[in-house]
Design a binder for these strands. Structure first.
Length: 271
DNA sequence: CAGCGCCCCTGCCCGC
DNA sequence: TGCGGGCAGGGGCGCT
């Protein structure tokens, strides 16, 4: 579910409700996420004021005076703002209650997500420090992308999804960007031309920006911080469309597996 | 180091 | 209707 656009949508949805508010109570119903939720999380947060809600790659960063709560949504997670009137349902694992009856509630059926405490400088945290540039920032440049790709034999799709290369591009948007750039996903990253990387660079940014505008992609159950689904699904050109006609040439789209992930492309438009 | 599978977990869909 | 198999938006880890 959550790639960069969905995490950014979540961030925008929750931030106005909780920034500047004090934490009154933390409830952990099931702390068995990817890593155990710190058992002292309540102790750390209660009485502290949330300064900002930021994002780095697919991580949400809740900034407090002494450190950050790092939230990752994994494959199936979402966060929303609810009131204490709303009864917790299955898979509502963590609540952070803020002053003014605003609850930040994490729901994550598959529990691949994470809620961690990162004291001090968050950029130095082990899960953050090796991350590549933000695709929508000026740190992400064509030159850097192209240079990193040289001599790399792995498929360009896997290269694009490598968070050390660029953050936030997951399976949906990798498929979409490669289609729009006319590049075959299985082609070795090091053999893709400079001109193709120019297109890819632009399309990655374009597709992510457009998806954010649409509130992300809801395939099944993603909701942003306001509880609403995203509308980018209707703009998907290849993901989930195997066998259906290519939007450009009408030839049926082909599906293969790359790194255990569904990969859909047009054999005639992508080379 | 690069690159590739294997998992973690629940839910859902499909075929029998 | 029930059940087994496969697949799902991520990514750390261990192995070659």
């Amino acid at each position: 579910m959550p790639e960069l656009p969905e995490v950014e949508t979540s961030r925008r949805g929750i931030a106005p409700h909780i920034e500047g508010r004090e934490v009154e109570r933390v409830t952990v119903r099931d702390g068995r996420l990817r890593w155990p939720v710190p058992s002292n999380l309540a102790q750390l947060l209660e009485g502290e004021t949330l300064l900002t809600v930021a994002r780095r790659g697919k991580y949400l960063l809740l900034q407090f005076p002494q450190g950050h709560v790092l939230v990752h949504l994994g494959m199936s997670g979402n966060v929303r703002i609810v009131s204490s009137q709303e009864v917790a349902v299955k898979h509502d694992h963590v609540d952070i209650l803020f002053a003014g009856d605003k609850i930040l509630r994490l729901n994550d059926p598959r529990r691949f997500g994470a809620v961690l405490w990162a004291p001090g400088e968050v950029a130095e945290h082990e899960l953050i420090r090796h991350l590549g540039p933000e695709p929508l920032s000026e740190d992400f440049t064509l030159e850097r992308l192209y240079q990193r790709s040289r001599k790399r034999k792995q498929a360009v799709k896997a290269f694009l999804m490598d968070s050390r290369v660029v953050v936030g591009v997951g399976n949906i948007y990798a498929n979409e960007a490669l289609f729009k750039a006319g590049i075959r996903p299985s082609k070795a990253a090091g053999l893709v031309s400079k001109v193709s990387y120019e297109r890819l660079f632009d399309e990655v940014r374009e597709v992510l920006m457009r998806a954010i505008e649409q509130g992300g992609t809801t395939l099944k159950d993603f909701v942003g911080g306001d509880g609403k689904p995203g509308y980018f699904k209707q703009e998907l050109l290849v993901y989930g469309r195997a066998g259906k006609p290519c939007a450009v040439c009408r030839k049926p789209l082909k599906e293969i597996r790359l790194g255990q992930r569904s990969t859909v492309y047009c054999t005639s438009c992508q080379s």
